[in-house]
């Protein structure tokens, strides 16, 4: 992982998959980016696991447990929290 205060962040050009689709659709049909997004959105959403609640909840649960542990360790060190 590049250091947050380094410039290595900018050496690789990153493309948002969604933005790429929006641009393509806008150019194909010669429409506004806003109109292109409305068209592309349902297709893009099909690639996201909204309905797989078992998997999604498992990811969230794992992360929440990590945070609970972190908060506990910090409180033990005397850090105040909300």
């Amino acid at each position: 992982m590049p250091e947050p205060t380094s410039s290595k962040h900018y050496e690789e050009k990153f493309e948002f998959p969604l933005w790429k689709l929006i641009k393509q659709r806008a150019e194909e049909k010669d429409i506004s980016y806003s109109a292109a997004y409305q068209e592309v959105l349902p297709e893009y959403q099909k690639t996201i696991r909204y309905k797989d609640t078992e998997w999604t909840d498992e990811q969230i649960r794992k992360r929440n447990i990590e945070i609970a542990g972190l908060k506990k360790r910090e409180r033990e060190k005397g850090v105040k929290g909300d």
Partner: peptide
């Protein structure tokens, strides 16, 4: 991917500006 959709829903220009700037939310 969900985050990309959120950005597009709220202020879509941010997708373009981030990409132009070389910002990668998956790493930065």
């Amino acid at each position: 991917k969900r985050v990309e959709v959120h950005i597009a829903d709220e202020t879509m220009i941010r997708l373009k500006l981030a990409e132009d700037r070389g910002f990668n939310p998956r790493a930065h």
